[in-house]
Design a protein around this nucleic acid. Structure first.
Lengths: 183, 183
DNA sequence: TTCGTCATGTAATGGGTTACATGATTAC
DNA sequence: GTAATCATGTAACCCATTACATGACGAA
């Protein structure tokens, strides 16, 4: 999640951690902020993996050491590849709230057929949730008190809306790329 | 969160852990399941705090020991008090997603004026979120690509719906208990 | 007798937060 | 010169999950 978001943002332009965090907050819609306590360790990890680096090729090398100054990160060639493979991943991770959100935010960089697979997988997932809630309400709706019931009803309407929203996106996607790449 | 849910469920009737977990899953709408790995340690903690107990007052005492058999938990007098104070708490915890959900699920046991305070606090919180998203969209909406934009628009509509839903609940609550307890 | 499900638990791990510590740069 | 904010980082902690281990009990 953080990994995709960081690589995705850096694929648009190099940035330092502090800026990354602000972009992250607006990109992920404030419902997911990430503190420095998770961001910087992630940057270190991605750096050690060779996916990002803060080496500026031109640089006065000597003198300063042990200084903590601004570190501008950029995607490496390996990182670009890695991001591409993350965005093309159509496993269960891509269908949960966070994973789907992160992938959708960088859909512009994702192949059209993969986009469709992710949207459909996500819809399947949300439909299952909806059906589960529906049957819970049908089974126990009478026994719930008023508050528990309205809570469940509101939840059900929310997932129902998401299913319809996904259906719109899927239809748009299909009409946009009307070739037959599926099995 | 787990604490409120467990105490709240046990206040309705005694139960053992396994059953508790199933009730938890339907109560919290499947979007929040809790595994045994968090449930059982919580039961131990609540037990050590004296809020729940699995002592059956009538019991053949001798013989069996070291057997792991079924443990039926029930709320103690202290636990009842503690639950009441948790449900009456109108701090920030009561306004975030989880805390609000847990409290709403046991609203039937909450004092009417507290209910109103929690609903209003939650609404304020969600309104802030909505306004943040709105201004983000206004500021950067043009620069977002299509996918990022629809993601944000859908998010905005969702919080907007929640605000309206909360407003309905608040109005219902006010007309239900039309006395003047507020300052 | 074996399979499913009821039932309780632990250990390792994961992925984040809060609070703290430090220092550079900019605006007044 | 001092306050705000930019900027980087660490340590302690929290709260959950996964995977595993154990065992009782009823039905086929």
């Amino acid at each position: 999640m953080l990994e995709i978001a960081v690589l995705g943002l850096l694929s648009e332009s190099p940035m330092h951690g502090y800026e990354l965090r602000k972009r992250l907050a607006t990109l992920l819609g404030a419902f997911r902020a990430f503190s420095y306590g998770s961001l910087y360790p992630t940057l270190r990890r991605l750096s050690e993996a060779g996916w990002i680096s803060d080496e500026s090729p031109l640089e006065a090398p000597a003198v300063r050491r042990s200084r903590r100054g601004k570190r501008v990160y950029q995607l490496t060639a390996d990182g670009k590849e890695h991001l591409a493979s993350l965005l093309a991943e159509v496993g269960p991770d891509a269908f949960d709230d966070d994973g789907f959100g992160a992938r959708l935010a960088f859909f512009a960089q994702t192949r059209s057929d993969i986009r469709l697979q992710i949207l459909e997988g996500r819809r399947r997932r949300v439909e299952e949730q909806r059906d589960g809630m529906k049957s819970t309400l049908a089974r126990t709706g009478e026994r719930f008190d008023r508050y528990t019931r309205v809570l469940h009803e509101h939840g059900l309407e929310s997932v129902d809306r998401e299913v319809r929203w996904l259906t719109e996106l899927i239809e748009h996607e299909r009409s946009d790329a009307p070739d037959g790449a599926e099995h």
